[in-house]
Structure formats: C-alpha cells, structure tokens
Amino acid sequence: MNRSNRIYIAGHRGMVGSAILRKLQSEGFDNLMFKTSAELDLRDYNAVASFFEAERPEYVFLAAAKVGGIIANDTYRADFLYQNLMIQNHIIHQSYLNGVKKLMFLGSSCIYPKLAPQPLKEEYLMTGELEPTNEPYAIAKIAGVKLCDAYRDQYGCNFISVMPTNLYGSNDNYDLKNSHVLPAMLRKFIVAKRNAEESVTIWGTGKPKREFMHSDDLADACVYLMEKYNESGLVNIGVGEDISILDLAQLVKKIIGFEGEILRDLSKPDGTPRKLMDVSKLNNLGWKARITLEDGIRKVYNEIKDITWKTNEAK
C-alpha cells in the first residue's frame, strides 16, 4: 500500500477498526475513508454498492460486524447470523465488482471447533462441531473466509482472512451484561477499589486459560499482513501465550491497586478449558506481538480509570 492509496476501514468505530485507523494514520496514510453505521448501513446492498461506486477504495479492511457476549450471541441467533452475512457479503462482493486491489477479512477464534486440539492451528477449521452458544456468529465468519477464498479462486481477487485471538484495548466494551472477561474484570476491580469493597468475585474455578492481545498489536499485524501476505486460507493473529483466569484476576488486581481479596463463584461455569492460538504461521511470516499483557492492561487502565459507572451495574 502506498500512503496515498484509497483505503476503506469498515467498522472504524469498533475496537479493531479504530486500532487499524490509528495505525494507518500514524504511518502517514492520508487517504482513509470510513462511514458510521448511521451514514452507511452495511446491511443495505444498494447503499454499499453506491458507496463503492462513488468512492472506489483500493484497499479494504473488513472489521465491521455485529458483535456481543455469550448471552447476546445465544439470544439473538438469527440476527447474528443474518446481519453478519449481509455485512460481509455486500462488502466482499462490491470489492470484487469495483476492482479493489486487496481486501482483509477479520474473523474470530470462535470459528474453530469447540473441542479442537490446543493450540489452535489454521488447519483445524471445520474439523468438528462449534461451540453452540455462538454458532451463528462463527458460521457467518467461516462463510466470510470461504467467500474470500471463492472470489480468489473464481475471479483472482486478492482477498485474505485473518483470525484474531481474544482482544482488549481502546474502545472496548465494558457493559457487564455482554462484555468479555478482561474488560469486565477491569471494570469490577476499578469499581471495587473506588468503593473500598472487601472482595471481587470471578466466575468458576479460575483454572481455564485464555490468550489476550492488545488491539494495537492486532492493528500492527493487520497492516503488516496487508502488505506482505497474499494467499488463500487464513492466518491466526495472537501472542502465542495464555494465562489462567485466576492469574489474570491477580494481575488486574495488582495493576489497579485493589487491596481486597479475590473470591471464586463455583456455581458459575468455567467454560472451555483453553483457547490458545497457534501463531507459528504468523511468526514465520516475520511478525510477532510486542505488547506484553501487563503493559497492555496498564495502558488500558490509564485510559479508563476515570470513567464513571453506576455501582449497582457492576455487581
């Protein structure tokens, strides 16, 4: 990509899209285009077609999606499947019709089978059943990967797919009803410290392990792969290391300076024992994560420590 290329970032207000936007701006790219959902409804075929015909982007980062936590995914199953299919189908098809030089489709680690071996290798895709609660979202993302490969095979489009691990960073979601484990944990410990509470409770035993990557690292990897990678299939993006939920809670406690104790609610489920990405393909392409988990959490804490949340919402 040249600094003057027309680059469209779909989903620029989300955690991933905004990180890619910041990365490109910091690198001197000055012909960036983006629209809010109010300005451009990506579920509307005609609206997306008009946008592509008028703006003629040369490169596309497809980071737009309908997202949510476990409860939202399981409750609004039709919405998650239909809306994500429409968003990605319209952008990928219009990218083909309007001669986009290269498109990157961003998926999710939930596309891998629930019981896939650890760490998760790219070739494990579609080798087993998915986690039932987020199956509609995962199926949509799998369809996006296959659609990119199909346009590559039939039309010669340079469309690539990447699968990020669990992310955290700027513009994350801290709503305890549908946020992911790390932002929810940050909010709980921040509120508990403010209120001088005696304890913070985490779900389950704390034994399951999860991998966490700062969104700025993801953005760096995405821009790198957009410039270097031109093959079918997918590339995992992660740090290649994981941490138990209990150890994560202890790390967050230390960073925030909470002096109470950590309790475990054993009536709550643990979830999948482990979800670690195999990032050997990414590393062999010449890219490795740079932001440590502790440094990344400190960075996020400094960004959100003064946010005001209602106490009763954090319990």
Rank of each mutant, 00 (worst) to 15 (best):
L176D: 02
L130G: 01
D149F: 13
I139F: 09
I139V: 10
L130D: 00
E197S: 12
A143T: 10
C148W: 02
I190R: 02
K177L: 12
Y168L: 05
S179W: 05
Y174N: 06
K228C: 12
S179P: 07
L167C: 04
R194F: 08
F189P: 00
D175Y: 13
M185V: 03
A196R: 15
A140Q: 04
L218P: 00
E227H: 13
N173T: 11
S215L: 06
Y168K: 01
R210Y: 05
W203E: 08
Y224N: 03
K228G: 06
H214R: 06
Y229Q: 07
P208Y: 06
I139W: 07
K177G: 11
E129L: 12
Y174M: 14
E198I: 13
N166F: 14
L176P: 04
T133K: 08
T205G: 03
K193V: 00
K188H: 08
L225S: 04
F189T: 00
S161Q: 07
H180E: 12
I202K: 00
A143R: 10
S215C: 12
M163A: 13
N158T: 12
A138T: 08
R210K: 07
K146A: 11
W203A: 12
Y151C: 09
G169P: 04
K177A: 10
F212K: 01
K207F: 11
N166P: 07
N195M: 14
G204S: 06
M213S: 03
A140K: 03
L167F: 09
N230S: 15
H214M: 14
V191T: 05
C148M: 11
R210L: 08
I142A: 09
A219C: 11
G128D: 11
I202Q: 03
H180D: 09
M185W: 01
G128V: 14
P164H: 07
L130K: 03
P132R: 13
T205Y: 04
S179Q: 11
P132M: 08
L218K: 02
G156P: 05
A143I: 11
G233P: 09
S232N: 13
P183W: 02
L147S: 14
T165F: 06
K141G: 03
G233S: 13
N158D: 15
D172G: 15
I190P: 00
C148F: 14
K207W: 10
E211H: 07
G206E: 04
A221Q: 05
P208W: 08
D220L: 05
S161N: 12
I202S: 01
S215V: 15
